Amino acid sequence: MSVSVTIGQAIAKEGFKMSGTSARTTNAAEMSGNGVIGAQWGQFFGNQVMEKIANRKNDTILAVYTDYESDETGAYTYVLGAEIAEAGQDKELRTIAIPDQKYVVFTTRKGPVPEVVVEAWQEIWSWSKHNERAFVADFEVYDGRASDPANSQVDIYISIK
């Protein structure tokens, strides 16, 4: 099977705020089955977190990788939520600010979310060997194209220097 990930041109994106649930993890933990991301998604939907995000700009789910310890081998914080106009008062949710940044956008093929996202990250890690990532904040965009988990397309923004 051929992996189909589209790599876009470098773009500049204005910073934004988002609110959601957060957890600390590593890629090694996630790949070994001892990670937290799968459970975090389950809790996100099970606890209807999206409905709790005050001042939400839209219904697009963002999955942000930030607070990098080092690079893709170190620990990072995974924040699952949505873009907001301003911070709400909910103490259960974490609000973060994503700074103005340059990104390269990777777009997955259409398919089952877990499969296409993992494929895209494998492509990103390969791409990273020859390109300089900034490790500021990277994020996945789950918009209307991801409404069917069995046939979704996701954009992944990778921060670059």
Rank of each mutant, 00 (worst) to 15 (best):
Q101P: 01
A29D: 14
E14A: 15
V113C: 10
D100W: 06
F44W: 13
V36S: 12
Q101N: 14
T107S: 14
N55G: 11
D155Y: 04
P114K: 14
D138L: 03
E14S: 15
T66S: 07
G88I: 11
D155A: 11
R133L: 15
Q48F: 04
E119R: 09
Q153P: 01
P149V: 07
G38D: 08
R24W: 07
N131F: 00
K161D: 11
N58S: 14
M1Y: 03
G74D: 02
Y76I: 10
Q40L: 15
E92Y: 02
G111S: 00
R56P: 07
V36E: 11
W127I: 03
Q89R: 04
D155R: 10
R133E: 10
Y157D: 07
Q153S: 01
V5N: 04
A150R: 13
Q9H: 11
V104P: 01
G8V: 05
M1S: 08
G111L: 02
G88L: 12
R145N: 11
Y157E: 04
E51I: 07
V105A: 00
I53Q: 01
A82F: 13
A87M: 09
E86H: 11
V116M: 08
T66P: 01
A150M: 15
V5E: 07
I96N: 03
K129R: 13
D90W: 06
T95G: 08
M1G: 05
R56A: 15
I11A: 02
I156G: 02
T60G: 10
F106I: 00
A63P: 04
E86Y: 01
R24H: 05
V3I: 13
D67H: 06
A28K: 06
A54D: 09
F45I: 11
A54L: 05
K161T: 12
I160V: 14
A150P: 12
V117G: 00
S159K: 02
E86T: 14
T108L: 03
F45T: 12
P99E: 04
V113M: 15
K52W: 00
D155M: 08
S22W: 12
G42I: 08
A150E: 15
E72Q: 05
V5H: 03
I7R: 09
A120M: 13
